[in-house]
Design a binder for these strands. Structure first.
Lengths: 227, 227
DNA sequence: ATTATGAATTATGAATGCAAAATACCAACA
DNA sequence: TGTTGGTATTTTGCATTCATAATTCATAAT
């Protein structure tokens, strides 16, 4: 019996999950904002059933808070939450690095190197927008090399929660330079397939980020995409 | 404005999530088994709406697979899945250990020691049932000391997925003795608040477990609760 | 003026209804 | 025997409906 080729028929509810997640991440829905079911349904042109299903899923992802009998609000990620999430991120990146070293072949690593080099070019040009995107791509590439879908998924979920937090300060020049130096070391460890060292570097890199990208509770300087 | 005391009004859908999770974990719903909505609804005395909401949540937890237009089945955790989940578990236990060392006071640690000693007594008596329960309690206690709810939640979710897998072999006497020795070391590291060492020990302990509790694809000896 | 009280309105939680898709069934045929 | 084609049945996905809890708003009381 051959596995049938599954034509990916989209469920409305899945589409809604993705759409809402996007809206939360790019700020179209602000943290703490009440999610009025009827209003959103009208806006999206759907009925309440699939929306409510989507909300349940997003709640289990931690992007939405469900208040029984009082509706849903966009999750309010606190400083404490962020402080809790970063060590988890670090641990996940750590295993990802180890697995990547164990499983990647030269070709794979060359591809990460290419991304890394592009990222460095963006840094040289001080193109922050591009840099941040490529930085993310490098980290994702390492996770991809780890060939562990469950791990990747958890990483994405944590990252989403962190990004859903609006109170993250942009890194300053010094922070940026530090991150760059760390990335050089990371790339080196990967190319040497030194899993233990890569794991350590990644954990430190993330821990460092969590410190550098300090919470802007002191100054009111809210800025996104710093991770 | 004081925070109102929230009377925990249970949503039907939440209750269903818990119930279904339990049914999956204790085998009342077998992996791969089709979940017939109507039949389950009749059995539980509810309508399809809350059941479907619950299924979406369980799907996002990885305990249920949603096949668009073809219903839901209990997730079939494969050997590969387990192999992917264990390194994640190890990483999570690792951070938990580090955080626990950093945050626990003597009182907290004494409580873990008590659980640990009870567990050892169960081992001495070869009371496996009790041992497994207490072993779990020890690990949970360490996570509790880490005071990181997000971390604890992820741990529970991974553990649930592992337990949802029916193809886990029971540890033999030698494995058990090894695990015991490791637990002694773990307890020692915790009492010395040596975070780095505890982290390392826990990661190894979990990695060891994943090897010892090998998958029973060779022999047909399916046995649960080995973790 | 501020706080209570209670009716009116609105929103949520869950059941039901309905169209479309998937599955089961069964006969015709190679 | 096994395969194809077509119909009937069931199941799924989503919309709608309905009961009840929460909120709002107006009025009365302090």
């Amino acid at each position: 019996m051959t596995e049938p080729t599954i034509v990916p028929r989209l469920n409305l509810h899945d589409t809604i999950v993705t759409a809402l997640r996007g809206m939360i991440l790019d700020g179209a829905l602000a943290p703490g904002e009440k999610i009025a079911e009827r209003a959103l349904c009208d806006r999206l042109g759907i009925s309440r059933t699939p929306l409510r299903e989507a909300l349940k899923v997003l709640a289990s992802e931690g992007l939405v808070e469900l208040l029984p009998r009082r509706g849903a609000i966009v999750a309010q990620i606190t400083e404490a939450d962020i402080a809790n999430l970063f060590p988890i991120m670090g641990a996940l990146e750590g295993v990802a690095g180890e697995l990547a070293c164990a499983r990647a072949d030269a070709r794979d690593i060359a591809r990460v190197r290419a991304l890394h080099d592009q990222m460095m070019e963006s840094y040289a040009r001080r193109d922050e927008q591009r840099y941040l995107r490529q930085n993310r791509q490098v980290h994702e590439a390492i996770f991809t090399l780890a060939r562990n879908p469950a791990l990747f998924e958890m990483y994405q979920q944590i990252l989403a929660r962190i990004h859903a937090c609006r109170f993250i300060r942009r890194k300053d020049d010094h922070d940026w330079a530090t991150a760059i130096a760390e990335h050089d070391e990371i790339m080196d460890a990967l190319e040497q397939r030194d899993g233990a060292r890569l794991s350590h570097l990644l954990r430190n890199h993330i821990a460092g980020t969590s410190v550098r990208i300090a919470l802007a509770s002191l100054d009111g300087n809210e800025q996104r995409d710093a991770v």
